[in-house]
């Protein structure tokens, strides 16, 4: 079983460039790829990369807590996705209509509101914005590496939230945002309390998103002119 020193050695082997490149890649994957398995993998990789990045700010033992929380979050999302996605696929394969009241649920719909070229352009624009903002402003003297990566993750997360109509994908976007915010905040205030609360909030978000993603539709017909 690998010890903490092995983990430290492994973390040290990842250069800053590799970290940034990895984070750019995972955000791009979540924004561009519809498949939930690939997105979930990107989310898990993101947690590892953020833990590596944060281990330069806070003690390694504490940084790994975020990685463990990320594992739990990914597990929660995996169970939720397994519960919800195959059911729909199976029903579609058998040619059955899902047992829902809404017409919208009967018709298969994509994970995103927009098509791939639009998302690609959106991602390019967000990248450009991050580059411009990070070169023009610095938030309270945050180190450049943390400022850029934090901004990139937060912006990428918000882009995912804006483009998706799938609850699980939205949750992933939200977790990318909290990771980005966590990096930025910890770089300007090295507070372990905030770090701990951010880890807890990630679990709360995952719980709420799993609930939203798995709860059945509850249209009761009381929408327009309801009593």
């Amino acid at each position: 079983m690998p010890s903490l020193s092995d983990l430290a050695r492994a973390f040290a082997a990842v250069s800053a460039f590799q970290q940034v490149f990895g984070l750019v890649l995972v955000v791009a994957v979540v924004v561009l790829v519809s498949d939930w398995r690939v997105s979930l993998l990107a989310l898990a990789v993101q947690y590892v990369l953020v833990a590596i990045l944060l281990s330069t700010l806070i003690p390694l033992q504490i940084a790994t807590v975020r990685m463990i929380a990320g594992g739990l979050v990914a597990l929660m999302f995996y169970i939720t996705a397994r519960r919800t996605q195959p059911r729909r696929r199976k029903q579609r394969a058998q040619g059955e209509a899902p047992p829902t009241e809404s017409v919208d649920d009967v018709l298969p719909r994509g994970v995103f509101w927009t098509n791939l070229p639009f998302r690609l352009i959106g991602l390019a624009l967000v990248s450009l914005s991050v580059i411009v903002i990070s070169s023009q402003f610095v938030l309270l003297n945050a180190p450049l590496l943390f400022w850029v990566t934090g901004l990139w993750l937060a912006a990428g997360g918000l882009l995912t939230v804006a483009l998706t109509r799938d609850a699980l994908k939205l949750g992933m976007g939200l977790l990318f945002f909290t990771s980005g915010f966590g990096i930025i905040y910890l770089s300007i205030d090295n507070s372990l309390l905030v770090y701990a609360l951010l880890v807890i909030s990630d679990l709360v978000i995952a719980l709420a998103i799993s609930h939203i993603a798995s709860v059945p539709s509850s249209l009761e017909g009381r929408r327009h002119g309801e009593m």
Binding site: D104, R165, A167, L174, F177, I209, I212, S217, L219
Partner: peptide
């Protein structure tokens, strides 16, 4: 309180999910 909300469409984002986003932001 988001857990007490009832999404209008299964697995789709709606008022409840956006409210959660809002809380975080």
């Amino acid at each position: 309180l988001v857990l007490a909300m009832e999404p209008r469409r299964a697995q789709r984002v709606g008022g409840a999910a956006y409210f959660l986003v809002l809380i975080i932001v």
